[in-house]
């Protein structure tokens, strides 16, 4: 019976070949523990997606509602404190892991031709991860997040040529308010997850296509 299901899927989707390729593909001998940071970053991303969806069920963006809705998650929801803390801790660990992964790739020279494009997608993924952190930091709307965002958007506003536009875009007004919160929330839960997932797919596709780089 179960074989019937496998045969059914194999005829239509070629699952045997795909699973054989997945199970039997060779991992080069020189791969050691230093190679795990990219994978840990991906694990962090999955944890962020799962805990983020749970938080989004109860979070309400808005200057009057954001803080109280996060308190509600922490005080009244089962494991609310753990889920929010897991989201916050994993965010920080994820950025550390991206940086360590980048340094590993750099000092191993794994960016060398023909892997330049995977380096490019990797750097863009790094910038997206940092933007994820920055946009998420404002959402609880406590003193820390408000003033850190104020400093951050002021730095962005001081950028030559594009600063003014960038600050207007981020704040969606002249100061941090309801519009800013919805904007950061949209960036955090809609734009970045979609764009980052697409770049992640490209990143992984290139690893499979190009293989793991030889050591220097």
């Amino acid at each position: 019976m179960s074989l019937g299901v496998v045969d059914f899927l194999d005829e239509r989707l070629d699952v045997r070949r795909i699973s054989r390729e997945f199970a039997e593909h060779k991992v080069p001998d020189h791969v050691n523990w230093l190679y795990c940071f990219g994978g840990i970053t991906f694990l962090c991303f999955l944890i962020q997606a799962a805990t983020g969806v749970l938080l989004a069920f109860y979070y309400r963006p808005g200057t009057d509602t954001a803080y109280t809705s996060v308190l509600h998650i922490m005080d009244d929801m089962p494991y609310g404190v753990v889920i929010r803390s897991l989201h916050a801790w994993t965010a920080n660990i994820m950025i550390i892991m991206v940086i360590v992964h980048m340094l590993r790739v750099f000092f191993h020279g794994a960016y060398r031709p023909p892997r330049e494009l995977n380096w490019v997608t990797g750097v863009l993924l790094f910038f997206m991860t940092v933007t994820f952190g920055f946009s998420g930091y404002l959402l609880p709307m406590n003193q820390l997040s408000y003033w850190a965002t104020k400093v951050g958007t002021e730095i962005a506003g001081a950028m030559p040529f594009v600063g003014g536009y960038l600050q207007d875009f981020l704040l969606a007004g002249s100061k941090i308010g309801d519009a800013t919160l919805t904007r950061f929330y949209t960036i955090h839960v809609i734009i970045l997850p979609i764009v980052l997932s697409m770049f992640l797919a490209a990143h992984f596709y290139m690893i499979r296509k190009q293989g793991i780089a030889d050591p220097l």
């Binding site: 997945f22 199970a23 039997e24 593909h25 060779k26 991992v27 080069p28 001998d29 791969v31 794994a110 060398r112 031709p113 023909p114 892997r115 499979r208 296509k209 190009q210 293989g211 793991i212 780089a213 030889d214």
Partner: peptide, 17 residues
């Protein structure tokens, strides 16, 4: 100057699973 790509690795290494 070169950095070998996927196919050349299939001889060596450990299976993923």
């Amino acid at each position: 100057e070169t950095n070998h790509s996927h196919d050349e690795h299939d001889q060596g290494g450990v299976p993923f699973l």
